[in-house]
């Protein structure tokens, strides 16, 4: 096995056009071997189109993609043996059991000695191994999908929105499986519109909006560079608090009967606000100071919300 460099994935000026619509607009990035790389963006940003070109499902309009040093447009057949894919909206044969499905996919990779039991354990499906696919819940289906992507012990794993549509518990169960992959040292390309997912799992995050990568780096770097402030939240504060904060020259980013949220550049600002409230005789029931997250980075960079859900700002506040 020869490899030209340490990159598992190299994407150069990748563009995909559907009629007049640019789904993917000239993106370039590299993923190192052993790295977990996340493409983060809202629905319709072009994440899936990009990843489907990279994992050989679609063909690009222009640009070049190499996986493990091989051009995807020329070496598809060699590449598919070395990558594992969980496509978006994964589905499988309704009346085939978990174990049979794994055995079938293992057979497609020309019968290497696959340890089906280990895979079933890895994705925690031991109790369900004799269950037919149609009887599995959404979370279990996704876990089977992940196991199928790993059935031939691939070098690079593509997971396209692995937790979309799952309830929070099922999502956490999938994250546990993905953290296991990370510990095993697999190269993973992940797409998601959950910033928690990207923050928790990815070494590198590329924020994608309208087909373009608008920022890229580790979650810490992205936050540091793009959102160098703190967020102070005061719960059940009375109206006086609002007045005091404004008098001090801070403009609350959120104000309602439940809470006031204030963006503060330095820690001293927090102290200043708290003392002013105390002196003014106003009251509040609880407070929380935290660093911004990728959701806020995204908001700042694009001016649009990452998704309609409540995870992120509200969920972690």
């Amino acid at each position: 096995m020869t490899r030209a460099n340490d990159y598992a994935i190299e994407v150069e000026n990748l563009t995909k056009r559907y009629g007049g619509v640019l789904a993917v607009d000239d993106i370039s990035f590299t993923v190192k071997i052993g790295e977990v790389f996340a493409l983060l963006g809202p629905n319709g940003a072009g994440k899936t189109t990009a990843v489907e070109i990279i994992d050989t499902i679609r063909t690009p309009t222009s640009g070049k993609v190499s996986i493990l040093g091989m051009d995807v447009s020329k070496k598809k057949y060699d590449i598919v043996r070395r990558i594992g894919v969980l496509p978006q909206g994964f589905s499988s044969f309704d009346r085939i059991t978990v174990r049979e499905t794994l055995q079938y996919y293992a057979r497609l990779y020309r019968g290497r000695n696959t340890d089906i039991d280990r895979l079933i354990e890895l994705v925690n499906l031991k109790d369900k191994s004799k269950e037919q696919y149609r009887n599995l819940s959404g979370g279990l289906r996704q876990r089977l999908g992940i196991a199928l992507a790993l059935v031939h012990d691939p070098e690079v794993v593509f997971l396209d929105e692995p937790t979309t549509g799952l309830d929070p518990r099922a999502r956490h169960e999938v994250w546990e499986v993905l953290q296991g992959l990370k510990e095993e040292g697999k190269t993973v390309l992940l797409t998601t519109h959950y910033m928690e997912e990207a923050e928790l799992l990815a070494d590198t995050v590329a924020i994608i909006s309208r087909g373009k990568i608008i920022a890229m780096g580790s979650p810490g770097e992205l936050i540091e560079t793009n959102a160098n402030y703190q967020i102070l939240t005061l719960r059940s504060a009375d109206e006086k608090v609002f007045e005091i904060v404004r008098k001090l020259g801070f403009e609350p980013v959120l104000y309602n009967s439940d809470k006031i949220k204030i963006r503060v550049e330095h820690t001293e600002g927090v102290q200043q606000i708290l003392s002013a409230i105390k002196e003014g005789g106003a009251s509040y029931l609880g407070l929380d100071v935290r660093k911004p997250n990728l959701e806020e980075v995204f908001l700042k960079l694009t001016g649009e919300a990452l998704h309609d859900g409540h995870i992120g700002e509200e969920g972690s506040a």
Binding site: D55, T56, I57, Y77, V80, R81, I83, G84, V85, P87, Q88, G89, F90, S91, S92, F93, Y105, L108, Y109, R110, L148, F158
Partner: peptide, 13 residues
């Protein structure tokens, strides 16, 4: 329609 063909297209079959 179920996307199974899409998954199969990423295997060596």
């Amino acid at each position: 329609q179920k996307g199974i063909i899409r998954k199969l297209s990423t295997t060596p079959i």
